[in-house]
């Protein structure tokens, strides 16, 4: 049955290859536009400090047993006391990330820039593909696939009798959109790759509340028990030395 469908070579020359080329060109263009619009933002001192506090508190928790009890207790109070402890966040002060975002126009601006450089070309190319190439069977992959792949490979063709190994033009567009990442990292350099999937994930995780990190770390530190490990080391040193002497 599969042999029945013969793909015109003109489809290859006028649909398959132009689509891929356009996708690559748009990717490159987007990279340069993003580079132009990128604003070098200086990190906020308070944010930096909060990150460092969390790091230090985490270290303290992990290595608590290596310092004397007195030293540990002093640090714990320094971090966790309810008046001016570094990890203590007053209740009212916990800022809503949304509010914070609106209060800082730079942040919103940055987000918008990112979104614009991502969404506009994507919608445009999608509209373009849809308009010119809707319903094309653009390629055939050289191996058979199960029915499950139909929605992935034959987007835009509502025929259930076509063999799944044929790829519609719209699906070819999607395959390119997500599959060209490796190619971009080749031509634009490792870290410059325009990575849509990653960016989408970032969007989801945006707006994490730093004060939440602080209070979580505080809770962790609060329940940390101190058990000084050093007394054991004397015995261990003894065994080490015994081995050396003998």
């Amino acid at each position: 049955m599969a042999e029945d469908l013969v793909l015109d070579t003109a489809i290859r020359d006028w649909v398959l290859i132009p689509l891929s080329v356009v996708m690559v060109l748009i990717g490159v263009l987007r990279y340069f536009v993003a580079k132009l619009m990128r604003s070098s933002q200086t990190p906020d001192a308070k944010m930096v400090k909060e990150g460092q506090v969390i790091l230090r508190a985490r270290n303290l928790r992990a290595a608590a047993n290596f310092i004397p009890t007195k030293a540990f207790r002093a640090r714990k109070i320094y971090f966790c006391n309810e008046e001016n402890g570094l990890l203590f966040v007053p209740k009212g002060q916990a800022q809503n990330p949304q509010a914070q975002m609106f209060s800082d126009p730079n942040m919103a601006m940055d987000m918008m820039k990112k979104n614009l450089s991502m969404i506009i070309p994507q919608t445009l190319t999608f509209a373009w593909v849809n308009f010119f190439f809707s319903g094309f069977v653009a390629a055939k992959i050289p191996f058979p696939l199960t029915q499950r792949f139909r929605s992935m490979l034959q987007n835009g063709i509502d025929l259930s009798t076509v063999d799944v190994s044929y790829v519609s033009s719209r699906s070819w567009y999607f395959l390119n959109l997500f599959g060209l990442r490796g190619f971009f990292s080749l031509i634009l350099g490792e870290e410059n790759a325009v990575d849509d999937t990653q960016r989408m994930m970032q969007m989801g995780g945006f707006g994490m509340d730093p004060s939440k990190g602080l209070s979580a770390e505080k809770d962790n530190l609060d329940i940390t028990q101190h058990d000084w490990a050093l007394p054991n080391f004397e015995q261990r040193a003894e065994t080490v030395l015994k081995k050396l002497v003998s």
């Binding site: 004397p68 050093l230 007394p231 080391f233 004397e234 261990r236 040193a237 080490v240 030395l241 081995k243």
Partner: peptide, 16 residues
């Protein structure tokens, strides 16, 4: 006494 413990731990960590 604490110093002695830390010397001991140094010995342990450096293998004497």
């Amino acid at each position: 006494q604490t110093a002695k413990k830390y010397y001991a731990s140094t010995i342990d960590l450096t293998g004497g």
